[in-house]
Amino acid sequence: MTYNFAFLDEDTKRMLRRALLKAVAIPGYQVPFGSREMPLPYGWGTGGIQVTAALLGPDDVLKVIDQGADDTTNAVNIRRFFHRVAGVATTEHTAEATLIQTRHRIPETSLREDQILVFQVPEPEPLRTLEPREAETRTLHALADYGLMHVKLYEDIAQYGHIATSYDYPVLVDGRFLTSPSPIPKFDNPKLDRSPALMLFGAGREKRLYAIPPYTSVESLAFDDHPFEIQRWEQQCELCGSGESYLDEVVVDDRGTRMFVCSDTDFCSGHRMEAQA
């Protein structure tokens, strides 16, 4: 049995592309779309995989990462899936890819204008934990009435002494729409601001798409006296020695020994090669 190129039928891709064009035209606005049943469970990237399927062309080079790594189950399976149903070239190197589907990270290597980053989004609505009613959150977006988001940041400071939200940190896109950057660590938030690459977000279960077009301003919310800050580590990566990448803390034996390594595997191996050369 053969599939249509990139799994989805052409009409579905057309519907997705129309929704994506609208999303790009209104940065940060959540566009509804007819999310399809995909051959993987909700929460594993059904939104991202549909966006990728709608964008892929035969000449594209695809990279898929999960928590920064190219070799985790989710990443390997989605990469293999598109290799099978579209026959496109795949890569683990950020610089070689034209299309990167990602879960929970933005690559450390700077992106270019000819690259597109596709995010998998579990919950596209940043106000959801504070306001459960969909009709109300839509009204709040329509009126740009975003005081509520600061209630959450206030609670963080009141409870922990600092803004403890460390991932899915809310941003204001193009000075207008409050947007969830997907559960990337806030370490990656500054990379969203005026990025040369197009950033697309797909939420399959919630049936929403949104976009941050190239060179769009993305501001992380904060208080005047508690400005936005990213995570920092006292350690360096134990494999490549990098001091500026996002580090994962990994337990390596039963006695609780820990090591800190880069979460971006491609960046880490590239850095090691450079050191050897």
Binding site: G147, V151, Y154, A158, Q159, F223, H226
Partner: peptide
């Protein structure tokens, strides 16, 4: 919290100093 309840309307008006 109680404090966030009192401060919510101020934040809605744009006050951004914790």
């Amino acid at each position: 919290s109680a404090g966030a309840n009192v401060a919510e309307r101020l934040m809605a008006l744009g006050m951004r100093n914790y």
